[in-house]
Structures are given as structure tokens and as C-alpha cells.
Amino acid sequence: MSDYAMPGKSKRLLWFVWACWKSNLLGAMEFRLSFLLMAGTMLINDVVWIIFWGLYFRRFPVVNGWELQDVMMLWAVSAGGVGLMSTLFGNSSRIAGLVVSGQLDVYLSQPKPVLLHVLISRMSISAIGDVAFSLLVYGFYGDRSLIGLAKFGLALALATLIFIFFTVVVNCLAFWLGGTDGLSAQLFNALVTFTTYPTGIFRGAGKLLLFTVVPAGFISYLPIGLLRDADPLFMLGVVGVVGVLTVGGIWLFYTGLKRYTSGNMMGLRR
């Protein structure tokens, strides 16, 4: 007997999300050593960048108003956002591939919101290293007061949402243009790359680009506009961008789904 159509829908949806995450993690842990190595190497990879910035700030303590701590927070927010996206919503960057190879059938044949189901059905193990790195950097350099932690939590949530829905939007191009996996991956990589540089070093057209087409500026300015001094105007902009990307991403996905043509490729859930 199903509880479908009974009260408590949100609670059952949360149980489903939790069950998916749990399955992803269990699947990842089937190969213990590989799991630890992948998460560990990503952590080391991120630490290398931090060492680089540390050396840089030894010679130039302030870059256009940005100090070492701001850059550390930039990395904590950026790596944390992209890490949370890839850990908990790991299929975000694979949507184009799934559309083109006709592998949405399983999600469409089951009674759950298709986009949510697709997003949470995969976990990138290496991204767990990004999340661990983000927390470590914040632990060392961040404001550990209650307010500081709350602000960091908000910054992470906003960054994660921007990452997820920007990625969904660029991946949805596949519904109309076909094999856009490469293009979608390039745009996603551009977003990630630009979120790891201080917005202060960009001027003119570059800055305009970062606050429009590739909205990396809304993530990379969070250490200044939210963590250091809460700037209401900037925060309004961030919330607006998150709203537009979320609504736009969901709309694009479901509109595109009507054009989905399936396929005959063999498919297994992993």
C-alpha cells in the first residue's frame, strides 16, 4: 500500500532524497581504497593552490583590497560550493550526456520529480575532498563565531545553488542542440575557474562578464560582500541571481524534457 496522495508528502520526499544519498555513498564505499584515494588527492590538489596563494600574499599583502584571509574564504566558498554540488547533486554536470544518450528513461518511469531524481542519483567521490578542504580552510582562517558560521553556511548554500542551476541551464542546451556535453563542460569549468580568483582583479568587460554570462562574480565576491561586510545591495543581487537560475533551470529542464527522444543505449545505475 502506497502513502502517495496522503499527507506528509514533503517528509516522504526527504526520505527519498536521503535514501538516494545513502545509496550513492554505499556504492562509492564499495571500493574503499579508491574512495579514500580520490577524496584525498582532491584535497591535496586544493591545498597546492592555497600554498601558491600563501606565497603570493607574502610578497603582496593586499591585491586591490583583497587580503590573504579573503582569498582563503574565496577558496572555502568556491571549493565548498562546487564540492557540495558534485557530492550531493553529482549528476548536474552529466545531464547533457544523459539526454543525448537517452538515459533519462529510468527517472521518467518512476514517480519522483525528474530533475531532483536525476541530480541526486550520482555522487562524485573526489568532490568529498573539496568539501573537506573547504571546512578545513574555514576552520583555520574563518570567523568561528556563531554569526560567522551562519554567514559561511549561507555563502555555501548560495554558491552551491548557483553552481547547480548554472550547470543545469548549460546542460539543458542538449535538449535543443544535441551533443553539447563538451560545451556544457567548458562553461561549467569557466564558472569554477573564475570563482577562484578575486573579483577585484577584473575590470570593465571582464567584470561585466563575471556578473552576467558566467555568474562567477556572485560567488567570488561572497567573502567580501557577505563574510567580511554584509553588503545588502550585493546580497540582493546574489539572491536574485539564485532565483533566476533556479527557476530558469527548472523551467528549461522540463520544457526540454518534452523534446527528449530517449535512445537504445544499454544503461545501468551506478
Binding site: 545509496s23 554505499l26 556504492g27 529510468v106 518512476q110 544499454m266 544503461g267 545501468l268 545505475r269 551506478r270
Partner: peptide, 9 residues
Amino acid sequence: QKSQLWYHL
């Protein structure tokens, strides 16, 4: 040709 089962679980 399309499985509903999780491959590694």
C-alpha cells in the same frame, strides 16, 4: 537493456 538496479549495490 536499461536496469533499475544500482550496479555497485
